[in-house]
Design a protein around this nucleic acid. Structure first.
Lengths: 209, 209
DNA sequence: TAAAATCTGTTGCAAATGCAACAATTTTAT
DNA sequence: ATAAAATTGTTGCATTTGCAACAGATTTTA
């Protein structure tokens, strides 16, 4: 985090105060939204988890983004001109906040002081989102599955300040996050294990170097 | 763009009005900045072009980001815990605006009305950055070089509203943008040409379908 | 404008990755 | 609690991609 700003508390206030927003609940499997150009929708995950899914022309599914509590997503952030069908599905029971970016900077009917604060804090959410995306790019640009894995493990290890940590995804999802074949990912993990770089128990990984 | 907001004009005003910023000039090859954790620096390209470069442990160079006029970049946007050396180099004569994100929301000593506007517009810059990053991820997650090329061509074609368009990079840089081997990229382009999908004259591409 | 540097185009071969398929295990839903 | 669904682990083989190397073209610099 950039500042000491309390994201969670901000979102709670946001929800309580601003009349320009909607909050909806979704059960697992439900479609939260589809990305429709020019709607300028922004969403924030209040609880639960959602995936941003792409189906390409031959029906292949790719998870483009994975959003958890306090993450921000929406069609505003997505480039136009990519002719993919994009939609967001709840992968567990989720509570999502919706608003239109366009109306956000309009004067609030209650002239609330809250608005200025809100806009400031929105920047923090944006920055967090940019950081997440840069992290993903950092990994995606690594040239081999091995390099991707080692970089990713490095990050997990550093952020938990421990040589032992848990991968927060299933291996199936991790393969998708790296955009590589699952069996190739498993093979590489096996090699890293056999070569003594890591120890693996389920999704619990221990760095041995 | 999300709104009718005039980014260029905003930056000009920003430069003229706000005392919390610095503007510096760089010649080709000069280092603009290095990413140092916790400095919370944000930069905007006023003119010219800069590359965000990563050198990994075995000295391989990767262009992580390419920023042109009005693009925003900086250490604030970059995940901590990645132990890479990151720095930004001017690839041509460039004028760069610097400020610290932390001081941005502090009261301006001149109490300028400009500040509120500035913060609003900063969001637009952030959103543009997020869109760029999502576009890059969209391409990076395509599973083959062929798919990457076709998606990219599709985007260039749509945004120029023409079957004929120019790739705004050298092929060397394009390979790096896709994070693939240059000769493999050239090979795939040759195959697309031979199979009659595209016509190629230098970096000018014509879609034949 | 000549020399240096970079970029393009190409290839053969090696290495990495993807694909398909399946059994075993674990998780989720009824 | 049990059936259904999803995930894991594995392999052989096909395909894609990377690597190295080089000559020719183009661009940049002095």
């Amino acid at each position: 985090m950039v500042t000491n700003f309390d994201k969670k508390n901000f979102i709670k206030n946001f929800k309580a105060n601003c009349k320009k927003i909607q909050v909806k609940n979704f059960i697992k499997g439900e479609t939260v939204t589809t990305y429709i150009e020019k709607r300028n929708q922004i969403c924030i995950v209040l609880s639960g988890e959602v995936d941003l899914i792409r189906y390409d022309f031959n029906g292949n599914k790719t998870i483009i983004g994975h959003f958890v509590e306090n993450d921000i997503f929406g069609e505003v952030f997505y480039p136009a001109n990519t002719n993919n069908e994009l939609f967001v599905t709840a992968i567990k029971k989720s509570e999502i906040l919706f608003f239109s970016y366009d109306t956000l900077f309009e004067k609030c009917e209650y002239e609330c002081v809250f608005h200025k604060e809100l806009i400031n804090n929105l920047s923090e959410l944006f920055i967090d989102e940019i950081i997440d995306l840069n992290l993903r790019i950092e990994l995606l640009t690594k040239r081999s599955i091995r390099e991707k894995l080692l970089s990713y493990f490095e990050i997990l290890s550093k952020s938990s300040m421990n040589k032992v940590f848990n991968i927060p995804y299933t291996y199936t999802d991790l393969a998708d996050y790296f955009s590589v074949d699952r069996s190739s990912l498993m093979r590489e993990i096996k090699m890293l294990t056999d070569e003594g770089f890591i120890k693996k128990e389920g999704t619990k990984i221990t760095l041995l170097y």
